[in-house]
Design a protein around this nucleic acid. Sequence first.
DNA 1: TGGAACTACATGCAAACGCATAGACTTGCC
DNA 2: GGCAAGTCTATGCGTTTGCATGTAGTTCCA
Lengths: 149, 149
Amino acid sequence: MPTRTTLANNAWEALLSAHARLMKQFAAEDIWHDLSMREYDVLYTLSKCPHPVRLGELHKHVLLSQPALSRMVDRLVERGLVQRWADPADGRGVRLSLTDAGRARQREIGRLHARSVARAVTAELNADELRQLATICWKLAASDKGDQA
Amino acid sequence: MPTRTTLANNAWEALLSAHARLMKQFAAEDIWHDLSMREYDVLYTLSKCPHPVRLGELHKHVLLSQPALSRMVDRLVERGLVQRWADPADGRGVRLSLTDAGRARQREIGRLHARSVARAVTAELNADELRQLATICWKLAASDKGDQA
DNA sequence: TGGAACTACATGCAAACGCATAGACTTGCC
DNA sequence: GGCAAGTCTATGCGTTTGCATGTAGTTCCA
């Protein structure tokens, strides 16, 4: 009879293993062109924001240190995929959005990646399991705040 | 009415978000001493192997390039936490195991980390959800059999 | 209004990473 | 047995990362 602690640790280890396996599989796909998956992740996150977003806000969603993110944005700006704007309400701040080229790029890769994801995940899980996984993981993801869906 | 593809992508995004949020939270804990979480991950993986394990085998479980893993092992050997053995059955190969110090270190940190994990995860999920999450994620993790291009 | 405390982002620097490839060994085929 | 092809790990090298800190702008409160 496993304790609640044991159940929790087993669930987390399972999540980590699933994450590692699928990340490796997706990284091996030949769809990323000259982007790293981390860079794509940033483009994808920006693509979901209707308005230019603060660096700090972006940082909450990306597993990267703030300086590393700042410099990655540098590079994406230099490549013409992201735009930096001054924030009129806060002179320290920066607002970021995709350029048209950046949006096009994200869509192009996103379309292919979404297929890979669907193929990999539906190969192992039925619709009920997909719904359960989403429900449970969103609980874990949003736990300090009601965030998006 | 969401399609199966949409369900799959939503589930994967939820998993990624949960992963990112919890990883950040765990990284912020003050329990790692002079190890990075990636290094701890390697020690943990080794701790589960009853016999010395090949580098390539270890690599399957760690989200890191083979050269990066090789050099991380260098550093862990240099710090006295891991041992490298020649493989009698294959002269190219290397076998790895924890030293006593490495095992002690892993246990010490593991005890604390397991508590953090339990605290964070049980705060959001009940026992049924924990079991569902584990079952589903192990399915995703273990599907190393089927491979497609 | 002024200044201390705080926040947001950028930069210096050493460490660590990924990619390409080399080196060492094994396997398979003749 | 011998040589080509394949596998396992290590190394060279340019890039990216994290930590500590710097710089600029904001907030709080006397």
